[in-house]
Structure formats: C-alpha cells, structure tokens
Design a protein around this nucleic acid. Structure first.
Lengths: 341, 341
DNA sequence: CTGTTAGCGCGTTCAA
DNA sequence: TTGAACGCGCTAACAG
C-alpha cells in the first residue's frame, strides 16, 4: 500500500521546492498566501498523502501508540479500546494492540516489539510485570499510562518514581454501595469470590470488600472467601461450587468480576438455589452480557468508556507536555441493582 | 519510545561496517562465521533492536496491516481480531484497528489514513463501500482481504476483477440445519428478523433462509419477515414486538444475528410468550453471551476464530506471492441446539 | 519568503 | 567477504 505520489511530485508541479511544499502543507513555516494556495491545489489534484513512515523517521514521532491488554477478546477491553481509539484518533494517532495473556514473558516481548516500532506512547492494562520492570523495558522517557484496578494502592511518591500516569477506578465506592445494598435487604452473610491470589485487580477489590464490611460493622467469614483460578465463567463456577457445597453457606456472594459472577449464577442454579432469594449475587464491571443473563445481574459499573477516555487524555497530555506532574485518575464506580441482589 | 542504540553502534563495537552488521543480522548476504558471531554477541550485549520505521522506509514494507471493522466493541469482532492478531504476529506483523461504524465516509477516511501509514495489507469486515470503490481507494496493488457474510454472492470472475481474497461463511449450511431442526420438532410457522434492508450480511442470510424453506417444502410468509433497523438487541426487540403483536404470529423466529435474537427473546418475555414452547428462537454467530442468556440461545455457530485465521492466512499468502489466484474461503456454519429451539 | 543541504536509521547497490 | 556511498520521503537548519 505505497503512496505513488510524493512531496517531490507536488513541489515539481507547483513550481516550488519540496521544502516549501512541505512548509505550505504542514504550516511549519510561513509561506506566501499565493504559493500556499497553489501547493494545496496541486496536492488535492494529485491526491497527495504524506508518507507517515518517512515523516516518522524524520520527526522522530510516529503518531502511533501501543495498547497492551491481556486479551482483546475479553469482554471488558473492547469498550476501553474503542474509547481510546476514538479519542487518540482525533489527535491523528492510531494504535497497535498487543495481547499478552497475562504472561510476563509475553509482556516483555510485545513491549520490545512496540519499542522497535517507535510508538509514541504505551497504555497498559495487563501487568504481570511490575511497574518498575515495565519502565525498564520501555526506557526512561516513553510516555506510559497504566490501567490499574484501583489507584489507591500506589502512594503518590511511587507514581512519581515510576514516571507513569495511572488510570483506575474507585472500587471502594461501588463495593461499599453493594454491601450497603445487601445489608439494607437484610442479608449480611456475605461471601466473596476473588480472582487468583495476587492478581492485580482482584487483590485490591478483595481488600475493599474487607474494608467495606468492617466499616459497616459486618463480620467477614474467611471460609466464605474463595479464590477462583482465573477471571472466567468456568473458574467462577468452580469456586462457587466449593462455597455452596458447605453446610454453612453465605446468602450472598460478591465477585471480582462479572464473568465470575455469571459462573456463580450457574453454580447456584445447579445447586438448586434461587437467585436472589436463596443467594444474592453481585458482579463487577457491568459487561454487556450482565444485562442479558437471567435474572439480570446486579453489578458494579466499571465505566470502561470513561477509563478509555481518561487513558487517552493522560497519554496525549504527557506526549504534549512531558513535564507535567504525574497523575492518578480514579473513576467512580457505582452499584446498579438489577435482578440478582 | 526511541531506540537509543542503532546499527551503527553495533557495527562500531564489533569492528565492522554498518553494512556488514546489517548483513550479519539479517542474513541477506553471507558473512564470515566469526564476524557474524561477534556481531550477534554485540547486538545482544547492547540489546540492539532494529528501528522498524527506518527499515520500513528503506524496504518499502512496514510489516503492519490494517484491520477495519464497524466497531471493535461489537461482540463478534474481538474474537476475529484476536485470531488475526495471533496469526500475523507469528510472521512479525502487527495490526492497526480502524472503526468505521458502517459509515462510507469513515471507511474512506480510515483507508486513506492506513494508506498514509503504508500498511502492507488490509483486512476489511465492514463494507458500506462497494468492493470496487474500496479497491479504488487502496490503490491497485494493495493486498486486500474482504470478510463477507457469505461468499456465494460474488461470482468467481467478479472476485478476480476485484483482485481481493474473500473469507466468508457457508451460511446456507447452518441455516438449513436450523430449519430442519425446527421442522423435526414440528414447528413450521417460521418467521425471520433480518438486519436493515440491503445491509451486507443480512441480505444473504435472508436469501439462504428462503432457499432452505423452499428446499424443505415449507411456505414462507412474507408478513413474518421483518427488517430490524440495525444489528442490535434494541432493534431486534422492536422488530420482534411488531411481529409478535400480530394475531397470526409465527411459532419460531430465526434471526440475522445473536444480538437481534436476544432482543427477540426479551420481546417474547414481554409478550408473555414462553420460549421455546410458544416461540422458538434461533440466532446467528454464537457470540459468548449466547451461552449465558436464559434459556441458552440456540444459534448457528459462526466460527470467528477460524474466520480470523483464514483472513490472516490469505493476507500473508498474498503478501508473499502476489500472483497466486484469488480465493474465496467459505467456513462451515452449524446449528448448536441449546434452550431456545 | 524561499531554496539548498543534510540527515533521520536502515538496506542495498557498487566497487574493492 | 567486506566497506563506501547512496537513497527510501520527509523536514530541520541554514542560507539567501
């Protein structure tokens, strides 16, 4: 897909030098009104489009960014990707998407591939690697935005050390709303299905759950806290099955994400438990499917589109002015009560 | 994200010329075993990575491709994107994703953007533009793969004229299985909710539906064929509502895609119709959500991953050998009977 | 205001 | 087998 007509051709036909044609089209330096008009006319006539590869080499800026996620086919990411895409597109940027499957080796490999391609910035959602290691791989100056489960975890001075902007969600808010909602319905025997031990979004949310329970004066039964082996429906099912086969079982289960929650729903059905009467279930994220399961899933809205916009804005800002202070953005999360709690 | 160490640095430290270093690393020309070893050692030591932008300019090949879809956030595409991504990644390619929202202006804009970026090939799923117009915009030689709803529509000589490979699904197969399935359950009053009039995947599937009905000796009632205003749950709901409020209503509804089918499911519920007893519903695509609605959606499997692989393979083949004959690939579709029919 | 020169980092001539 | 020189298409720096 090569461009057949180059700046040289435009310049020749407009009777100016390539440099002048360049200046006229990009407005870098002032060009006589009349000349500019001629250049533009010729450019249009020949359907000239600048070769962004050559421009990238010269300007040392490619107007591309890398978006790294665990798996673009996972239901939460496409919405984020779309939002980022729309936002950076308005600035003339396009994005490469990299899938890492949560594998640290893959993260390094993909990051180096992107470095090879001289992307102008990186947005990472997946983080098998520590932020320090990521900063190592991308080099000291690459604009970097981290999508974290929740920003509260990282103290401000850490962020500054990482030289990264961070976008996350205020999980505490939604989780507290969820616990309050359950309590106001008289259900206080609340269990929790988290993700794999030590995985990034899961750990924080579990802590927020503990905080909310404590703040609201509810006891946490550690036997009712289960770690799923992943963030999928199947692993959620298995974890719930474990939990529900106990003689003393919780009357509500909160989950680290919606997929796990849907798995819990299925486990409840298979254990002849009515939802929400025998067992209330609350998810996290509000993926599109949440509205289509039956009963509709009560969940905590993770504003994917807003997260995407915030990431894009943070990255554009840093590319524009590399010296602005590093920022966390925490988007609010809220409970949406539907049919399962 | 610039590379700080270049080929020059490697050459210098290895005591050879940049040309030799280049040849040693890429294997373009034979280099003395000993020299080669030294170059490789130094490259590793300095963590050298070739600048792919510079290489792209020089070789006139960027190892990037464009993937154009209507909306990456739509449930069917991410699976295709992931498959394409994995497959081309193995060949050292990465992809730009472009969203067109099914808008012809946007298609032209995005295609030109990609052309500016000298992508080595284009895979398009969305097609508001006619294939001829697409070929016009991308220029005569750009490797082009079209993802079509079904390949049967385009005669072979047309494809050759378009100089494009085409990947699609054999919709007739799955649709016939669906109609047979309904008939074997004794339901023959079958309606159909298609997409907007004239939209690409919808029109073909509706025709396949008519074919299957005719072949199986079932009458088609045109009053039971409704066109939704889009391919979404909401438009599907509205179309079904129309259909179900008739005094003579069908006892089964087949749909152009799963989202529409889920809308039909909701309309059935709101019309106090039991699924599948009062109304059988069959979707198309088998998006992840299909398994999670209740009852689980009976649908026709559109093998997204296989479609992605086929697209990637076709594109890689054409980039490799531009003169091979143009091909259609038709992936089989099959009914998966779950709870709604 | 405009043209000329040079070089971004590679890969490919051509000559040794 | 290796090195020197040039150019991919564009734009920054320097003259004029």
């Amino acid at each position: 897909m090569s461009l057949e007509v180059g700046l040289k051709d435009v310049a020749l036909r407009a009777g100016v030098s390539p440099a002048t044609a360049s200046n006229a089209l990009s407005g870098t330096r002032p060009v006589a009104e009349e000349t500019k008009r001629r250049v533009f006319a010729v450019a249009e006539e020949l359907n000239y489009r600048p070769n962004l590869v050559a421009r990238g080499l010269r300007r040392q800026e490619t107007r591309t960014i890398a978006l790294l996620v665990a798996d673009i086919a996972n239901p939460y990411y496409p919405a984020v990707a779309r939002a980022i895409h729309d936002r950076i597109g308005a600035h003339g940027y396009v994005s490469f998407i990299g899938n890492t499957d949560g594998d640290p080796k893959a993260e390094v490999r993909v990051l180096e591939e992107m470095r090879s391609r001289s992307v102008d910035g990186v947005i990472m959602s997946t983080m098998a690697l520590s932020p320090e290691r990521i900063r190592d791989v991308v080099g000291p100056t690459t604009p970097l935005v981290l999508i974290t489960g929740e920003w509260v975890e990282t103290p401000k001075h850490e962020i500054r050390k990482l030289r990264a902007d961070e976008v996350g969600t205020d999980d505490a808010m939604g989780i507290r709303e969820a616990v309050e909602h359950l309590r106001s319905n008289g259900v206080t025997d609340i269990g929790y299905v988290s993700g794999p031990r030590g995985s990034v979004p899961g750990a924080g949310r579990l802590e927020r759950f503990r905080d909310a329970m404590r703040d609201l004066g509810l006891p946490v039964n550690d036997a009712w806290i289960e770690h799923a082996d992943g963030y999928t429906l199947e692993t959620g099912y298995d974890a719930a099955d474990q939990l529900l086969s106990r003689i003393d079982r919780p009357t509500a289960i909160m989950c680290a994400n919606d997929l796990i929650a849907i798995g819990v729903l299925e486990a409840a059905r298979d254990n002849q438990l009515a939802v929400p009467d025998d067992l209330a279930v609350i998810g996290f994220d509000d993926i599109p499917t949440a509205k289509h399961v039956s009963p509709r899933l009560t969940t905590i809205i993770n504003p994917a589109t807003l997260v995407g916009y915030a990431c894009a804005d943070a990255l554009m800002r840093r590319i524009d002015r590399p010296d602005t202070p590093y920022e966390h953005t925490a988007l609010p999360t809220h409970l949406v009560a539907r049919g399962t709690a």
